[in-house]
Design a protein around this nucleic acid. Sequence first.
DNA 1: GCGCAGGGGGTCG
DNA 2: CGACCCCCTGCG
Length: 265
Amino acid sequence: MLLDLGFIDLDKIAESGQCFRWEKTDDHEYIIPACGKTLKVRQSAPDVIDADCTIDEWHHGWAAYFDAYTDYRAIVASIDPKDEYLTRAAEAAHGIRILKQSLWEVIASFIISQNNNIPRIKTTIKRMCDTFGDFPSASRLTLCDHSIVRSFGLGYRDTYLLDAAIRYLCDEPESEHRSDSYAEARAYYLTYKGIGEKVADCICLYGLGHKEAFPIDVWMKRIVGAHYKGRFPVEQYKRSAGVLQQFMFYYERSSAGAERDRQPA
DNA sequence: GCGCAGGGGGTCG
DNA sequence: CGACCCCCTGCG
């Protein structure tokens, strides 16, 4: 089924560091596991994807996953034209959307991501999913033997993950926090052991869809230091700061990669 | 090819 | 502010 979203680039999303389980099957083609289902999807033209699902399946699941009801062109248009760096970043990152992944998967994935590199994050998550046949639920993890969890190679993060699973289960009736404000949700997740400000913001942004969340990692610290005198004007972009963060993160990393790969003259 | 530093989308004490 | 588990990468 062809879907013209007006703003989508699968390759860039796959490299944007917000999802760790997309499987590239061919040029511009991916198998995407989410919410217990999988979607085969291909970039068929700029801003257009070909999704292997029915219109019903799209509207009742995948549309929300791809954040299809948010106008990303409007977000780009709202960028201060005097901000040259952000303008360039948004142009380079054209097509990146903020995925709405399942809350528990986001919590677990970003706990694993701390002080870690993306290749290892992906392999450890894959080991987990291969063991259980899918991304393990919180209860599944709490019920299995600790040695199983050890075998995923998470290092010291495994106790954080198990603690989070227990907290998530105990608080489950409230833990969706769908109605909470960004500030409330952030404060709640900060009470988890192993979740600091950066991961809490990732959970708010990727798991709960709070677009004002602005996760600051080492890359963003560099960017904000170099281009914003150490402080990004989040208040100016209440409805989109997290999206812009994603644009800048992608832009900085891809240009750094291009720099590295450049052949010496 | 293989061993060996170095460092990684941070967080805790 | 230093330590942190362990894998991945790059270099010898």
